[in-house]
Structures are given as structure tokens and as C-alpha cells.
């Protein structure tokens, strides 16, 4: 017991081979599942918010199992901000594009003037495009909230 305790205290917190291996194994599948939830959002349970949370959680898991620097290597701060803003732009851009093309704000059927498809199909597909933006924004906010709260804003060392 004492020996085990000394050995566990000797290494930095969370530095465990078992946890790291299984996180390394699971993270790609978690991200794939997040994309699946976003893509299936408009005709099954799920959607942009839920998929974005799953995507963001995969990066938070990396930061918890390794450290903040490792998760910054997979998703840099600049790329994170860029993706979040791109998500908002996708949402607003599609909504305003609908209005400019003669429909209402977020009236996807108006997009049929750009790419001819049935109005019903556009209403279904437009939700997917908007959800993509929502997912990117939610992922970016989750990851950046965790980074800032865990490191006190300096991105040096976290939990």
C-alpha cells in the first residue's frame, strides 16, 4: 500500500499509461461520433449543439489525460478562434443569403434559386448547413472556456 502510494505520488497527476492509451484510442472515435451527431441532426436525435459538445469534449479529454500543451498541439488557439467565428459566419451568412435571395431570414427554400432543388429538400438540407455552423461555434466555445478556466488565461499549464 505504502509502496504503491509513493509510486503514484512520484509522477505528476494524471500521468498514467492506462488512461493515456485508452484516451489516445478513443479520441478519434469520439470526434467521428461528434461529426455523426451533427450530420444526422436534421432527421434523428442530435444536432449542432450536441455534436459540437461531443467534439469539444474530445479536446478537453486530451487536455485532461495529457496536459494543456498537448491539446494545444492538436487544436491551436488561433485555429480554435477561426473555427468558432467561421461557425457564426456560416449561420448568419446562410440566414442573410436566404433573405437576399427573396425569402425570409432563415427561409431555406429561397436557396433553390442558387442550386435548383425541391423546396422541401432545401428546407431539410438548409438545417444541416446551419447546424454545421452551430456545431463549430459550440466546439470552439467549449474548448476555449476549458483552456481559459483551467490555465487562468495564460495557456501555460492546466489541470
Amino acid at each position: 500500500m505504502k509502496l504503491l502510494q509513493e509510486r503514484a505520488k512520484g509522477r505528476p497527476a494524471g500521468d498514467s499509461l492506462i488512461i493515456r492509451t485508452s484516451v489516445r484510442l478513443l479520441v478519434p472515435f469520439i470526434q467521428l461520433y461528434g461529426l455523426y451527431v451533427i450530420v444526422h441532426g436534421h432527421y434523428s436525435p442530435g444536432g449542432g449543439f450536441q455534436g459540437g459538445v461531443v467534439l469539444g469534449a474530445s479536446f478537453i479529454l486530451l487536455a485532461l489525460a495529457y496536459d494543456l500543451k498537448t491539446s494545444l498541439r492538436y487544436m491551436s488557439e488561433g485555429a480554435n478562434v477561426l473555427l468558432g467565428n467561421a461557425g457564426v459566419l456560416i449561420f448568419i451568412g446562410i440566414a442573410v443569403l436566404c433573405a437576399l435571395l427573396g425569402g425570409l431570414f432563415l427561409d431555406y427554400a429561397a436557396l433553390a434559386r442558387l442550386i435548383p432543388m425541391a423546396a422541401e429538400e432545401w428546407r431539410s438540407f438548409g438545417i444541416f448547413l446551419v447546424e454545421l455552423g452551430v456545431g463549430l461555434t459550440v466546439m470552439s466555445s467549449m474548448v476555449s472556456l476549458f483552456w481559459d478556466l483551467a490555465s487562468g488565461g495564460d495557456m501555460e499549464e492546466g489541470l
Binding site: 504503491l4 502510494q5 503514484a8 485508452s22 478513443l26
Partner: peptide, 25 residues
């Protein structure tokens, strides 16, 4: 498959955390 990977890992993490803060068996 994912339950089979994730559940033992979570148990291991909890047990190690208890060991580090010194929970007596």
C-alpha cells in the same frame, strides 16, 4: 466496444485518485 474500453479506464482513474489522496483500505 467503447463501454469495454472506457469503463475499466474510468474505474482505474478513480482508484488511482483515491490512492494518491490516501484513502485507507
Amino acid at each position: 466496444v467503447f463501454v469495454f474500453v472506457a469503463s475499466p479506464t474510468a474505474t482505474h482513474a478513480i482508484a488511482e485518485a483515491a490512492l494518491v489522496i490516501g484513502v485507507e483500505p
